[in-house]
């Protein structure tokens, strides 16, 4: 634990790439970055010795299909502080959070690919070897595509798990029973 590693320091380090940041909890800050800049951000944190990668969380955010609900979508996104850089997603999307911990501080790098089809994120495993395991889990549970992952095989799901079925998506309600 390094007392100089504060949120101010992290904000400074990530300044070139950060789109916005907000405090989610008194000890948790979220910084939104583009997936194209993710590797630079992680490298900057590593070079400065700011914390360590503790986990990668994937989330499935259901979209709003009904156009009349766009209002709702707008208000949700404005709450999340995303309006400043792009129009709201209307379809489903994934949110990927990279949790870095330092002392009791948690810094989430937040990557939000635009849609389920275009959901590629870069692999961190060349910078942080353990990330490969989290990314394998992310890939098979959500269907997020992790580019350049050294070993993209199943980590937790069985070998005969059907292709294209991702259990942690919100619309997954169980495998159809075999007849």
């Amino acid at each position: 634990m390094n007392p100089e590693n504060t949120f101010e320091r992290a904000t400074e380090l990530l300044a070139p790439w950060a789109r916005w940041s907000k405090m989610v909890q008194p000890n948790m800050m979220e910084v939104s970055v583009s997936r194209n800049h993710l590797l630079q951000c992680v490298q900057a944190l590593l070079d400065a010795g700011w914390g360590y990668l503790s986990a990668i969380t994937g989330m499935h955010i259901p979209g709003v299909e009904n156009t009349t609900d766009i209002e709702k979508q707008w208000s949700r996104l404005s709450q999340e502080g995303e309006l400043s850089y792009r129009p709201p997603h209307t379809g489903d999307s994934f949110l990927v959070l990279y949790h870095f911990c330092e002392g009791d501080l948690v810094l989430n790098l937040r990557v939000h690919p635009p849609s389920l089809e275009d959901s590629n994120v870069p692999s961190l495993s060349r910078l942080i070897p353990v990330a490969g395991i989290y990314e394998r889990e992310l890939q098979e549970m959500f269907g997020v595509v992790v580019d350049d992952i050294p070993d993209g095989s199943h980590f937790l799901l069985p070998e005969d798990w059907p292709d294209g079925v991702y259990p942690l998506r919100k619309d997954f309600k169980g495998l159809p029973e075999e007849v």
């Binding site: 989610v24 909890q25 948790m28 503790s54 986990a55 969380t57 989330m59 959070l97 949790h99 911990c101 948690v106 989430n108």
Partner: peptide, 28 residues
């Protein structure tokens, strides 16, 4: 809201990321 809860288990750090959408069930 969202919160990260960390505890030291006998084997090391356990991390929970918990997100609530305001209902009686967790969102994630």
């Amino acid at each position: 809201g969202a919160v990260v809860s960390r505890v030291e288990a006998p084997r090391g750090e356990v991390l929970y990321y918990m997100k609530s959408a305001g209902s009686d069930k967790p969102e994630r």
